[in-house]
Amino acid sequence: MGFSFSKEGINNVFKEWSKDYIIYAPKRIIGGGAFSDTDSIRYEKIDTVDEIEFNVKSTFSFKEILLPISQTLFFFTEDEVKEADGPKKGAIIFLRSCDLHAVKRLDEIYLRNGFEDYYYKRIREKGKFILIGCKSAFENCFCVDMNTNKIDAYDASLEPTENGYVMDNKCQDWEELLLNNSLSQDEVNPSYVTETKIHVNIPEGLSIDIAKSKMWDEYDSRCINCGRCNFVCPTCTCFTMQDIFYTDNGKVGERRRVHASCMVDGYTDVAGGSSYRKNNGQRMRFKVLHKIYDYKKRFGYHMCVGCGRCDDICPEYISFSNCINKLEDAIKEVNGNE
């Protein structure tokens, strides 16, 4: 059912929710940007609706909630292991359509890819998703081309209006709470965009031969392999393991898993000290094709959701969408070479 709220009303709802859930939303961190006196928009715990940044795309994505950047899995002593506690409360996560589509990708990798990841599952199971409608696309978005601009699979939606907030709710358990705090009940359809400035053309007939194209070479010198594009991506799921031995007592410690990036040195290191993809261009190739080629071969849909965060963040102005758009010519190039 659809509801409209005053600020007070929705904040009452938040208050009720926070008994069972931690509410996470994109929040403006004043001065939190890399440059002095600049802000950054990150996912943080919030208490009131004013804390939500509705107007700007978040720099980092919601994935940090389901898949913490650094997560302790267990503690160990010489002959015992103790699992690290999971969060006691569930998580309510505010996110946009592209990001909710990204949740499906995370689920694919962590729940349906042969086995269920215990640590992911215990957070995911208690997760609720509230869709933030998009009235217009941001710079670098290409969700329409990736078919991620619309979604129905939300628990509720929330959007600010001129004098309050409107919500479409699909969660039966919340109906009464919402009814009691709302101003009126009317049909609500979350906004979504139908047009973006950026378009991508993912050509048919991509094959692994594309790796031989010269198109990747320019990234050897342009890319600085910082990994920002991976860390902000809502669908990048790689992690690495770290066993830490506490320094005072070298026999006890903890195991954590930490986000990893296929662009950063060390990702393809193997025993013996060598590394598979040394060139940044080849790392770019691996990343791009994973997002729009080989993931699809396995799961039937593209991994990339078109949020454009990788383009927003790249300090070298390397555009992922622009790279996709070079593929068609590259296919011709490698086919012509044969």
Partner: peptide
Amino acid sequence: LACPTAAWTRKQ
């Protein structure tokens, strides 16, 4: 400036 995950930020 170098940190890709904003683990380092500036004190206000």
